[in-house]
Design a protein around this nucleic acid. Structure first.
Lengths: 145, 145
DNA sequence: TCTGCATCCTCTAGTAGGTTGAGGATCAAG
DNA sequence: CTTGATCCTCAACCTACTAGAGGATGCAGA
């Protein structure tokens, strides 16, 4: 039960097999023990660690931030300022991204609502794309969608 | 005025010089005329086309979608259904992304608000990351932040 | 005319966070 | 004993660019 191959770890966590190997390669997961035939074997601690990583990724933390968070999680005696700072920074990033996306959504809505059913020559969508001046808000930077 | 080198086009549109060459390489911009010494020369039509591309990128359209939109813009006699569909799809994508980010923001806020000032051993941030069950909402997929 | 700096050229490599595939070994069930 | 699933490594690909090397050209001032 507690000994499993990489596919078992994948099923237990919902993280794909190549992604697990990738995480090992970049040092997020430690190199596991191997069988005689060189196959990786994992135990419950690997499940926890990978679940932590997965959850942090879902919350949008970068791999670098996760490295720091894992390091903190491994040292419970340290002060947790840094964890708080990372979380606050991530919150700020997400906040900013939402703001930008909302501006984009406004423009896109206006484009879609004005949708014509004629020819491209008087298509509102193409027209707006051709002329930024038709936009109401600024959506200066792409939020990397 | 209407003849300009790549740096002029860059200034006129706010798109960086290497990015212009990149767009040419992937076929978004046509290969321009060259001077005898092999330097690219552009005119006003290039300015319009690049402005269109820039604006569409700002609105989050993928390069592939932009290829379609440009193709449409080049053929004003075609019906504009496809442009409408592309815009609607992009709106849906942005909408979904905002929804996910809002869920993330909720979790991050709860983490940040509960910030401790002690040791990592009872740090709320680490705790939440370790245990998805502590989350109130689902934030299944990472929105690629 | 010479000098020097800005701009241009091509080409390669790097970024984040993985995914996909080739080519081959091994395991477990029937 | 065979078949199909799973495993291994390594390399390439994805998006949308950005950065830098190394070299050619253009233009302005002395």
């Amino acid at each position: 039960m507690s000994q499993m191959p990489i596919g078992g770890l994948a099923k237990a966590t919902g993280v794909k097999v190549p992604t697990i190997r990738f995480y090992e390669g970049i040092g997020l997961l430690p190199e596991p023990l191997r069988t005689q035939s060189d196959r990786r074997i994992y135990d419950e601690t690997a499940v926890s660690r990978l679940a932590f990583i997965k959850h942090a990724r879902q919350l949008g933390f970068s791999v670098d931030a996760i490295r720091n968070l894992l390091d903190l999680a491994d040292h419970p005696d340290r002060p947790c300022e840094q964890a708080n700072r990372l979380a606050a920074a991530q919150l700020q990033t997400v906040d900013a991204k939402i703001g930008q996306l909302e501006a984009l959504r406004g423009e896109l809505r206006r484009m879609v609502e004005a949708a014509c059913d004629g020819r491209v020559s008087d298509c509102r969508v193409i027209e707006v794309l051709s002329d930024h001046a038709l936009c109401e808000q600024d959506h200066a930077e792409s939020p990397g969608t």
